[in-house]
């Protein structure tokens, strides 16, 4: 059994628009491991939704290969589609039908009964509103109903494209809790999002793409580590002299007002020792850790994407 639920190699897609040919994906290699929550990050227009569409058979790739659960798609998509639930871009259901009616039609498509519909409505907390028309739902309710639709299949992989777009803080929390619950139940969840703080809270691994190419990927810890050494923020009485001492000892030092941001030290204790030896005493010292946002900005800036 493949350890990757999604795998793409050399994926290419070009759109022909009035402004000419727009390259959406430029040889994307993507690997989404089985289990946990995988963040799929990238600036607007980087190709996230295009990738998802192609993997799910909604769009055609110009070149490259794609696999879902180790099965080549779109050629053999029908054999694995029952294991995948997805909400692409935004929930799209019939506005004039009730939430329950919408789900019932989808359930019948895959040979599931009304009992399962009630179960998933219960799961997303919409049991009481199931008979209301879809168009009367709030954005958050629509998002939850769309997730309920994906759960009809009891999927092994859940793909959520910008699931928190337009939601208020409580809606975002609901989705986050739901994603966590599903992941802990064994479902692999792929979240495409630009809300990095949100993603960081729930993701175990990430892929960052830009201009249709993979810029960074792996477990969140690996990606944070891979962007370079953590820096240390140092407050001293004489920042100029202290900076000179540390640079002299081979460290990279940047000024942030009266503070020094020091990179390259294997151990924070080395900094205190180097300064103390030259008569400068540290008043404050704190490790500055990378977060996903800084990594994202760093890799996208590095590619000239911002």
């Amino acid at each position: 059994m493949s350890e990757l639920v999604i795998e793409t190699t050399g994926l290419r897609k070009t759109y022909v628009t009035r402004r000419g040919r727009q390259v959406a994906l430029d040889g994307l290699d993507l690997a989404v491991p089985r289990g946990g929550v995988h963040g799929f990050l990238g600036p607007n227009g980087s190709g996230k939704t295009t990738t998802i569409r192609m993997v799910l058979g909604l769009s055609r790739a110009d070149a490259g290969t794609m696999r879902l659960f180790g099965t080549e798609v779109p050629q053999h998509l029908p054999s694995v589609i029952d294991r995948v639930g997805a909400v692409v871009e935004q929930p799209r259901l019939f506005p004039a039908f009730s939430g329950r009616r919408n789900l019932l039609l989808l359930a019948r498509t895959i040979g599931t009964d009304g009992k399962r519909v009630d179960e998933v409505l219960e799961t997303v907390g919409l049991r009481e509103r199931g008979k209301d028309r879809y168009k009367a739902y709030s954005l958050g309710m629509k998002q939850r109903l769309a997730i309920a639709a994906t759960l009809l299949k009891k999927p092994d992989l859940l793909v959520l494209d910008e699931p928190t777009n337009g939601l208020d803080p409580s809606g975002i929390r609901e989705i986050r809790d739901m994603v966590r619950a599903l992941a802990s139940g064994g479902t692999t969840v792929l979240i495409s999002s630009h809300l990095l703080a949100e993603v960081e809270q729930v993701c175990d691994s990430v892929s960052i793409i830009g201009r249709g190419r993979l810029l960074a990927g792996g477990s969140v810890a690996d990606v944070l580590r891979g962007t370079g050494p953590a820096s240390v923020r140092v407050r001293v009485a004489d920042p100029d002299a202290s900076q000179a001492v540390l640079v002299e000892r081979g460290l990279m030092v940047r000024r942030d007002g009266d503070l020094l941001l020091v990179e390259g030290a294997a151990d924070a204790a080395d900094i205190t020792r180097m300064l103390a030896e030259r008569g400068h005493y540290v008043r404050e010292l704190a490790a500055v850790s990378h977060d996903l946002e800084s990594v994202f900005l760093e890799v996208t800036e590095g590619e000239g994407l911002r």
Binding site: L56, L58, T109, A149
Partner: peptide, 10 residues
């Protein structure tokens, strides 16, 4: 909804 439908029957 055609897209939604195709996610259930490709």
């Amino acid at each position: 909804t055609i897209g939604t439908h195709l996610l259930f029957e490709p």
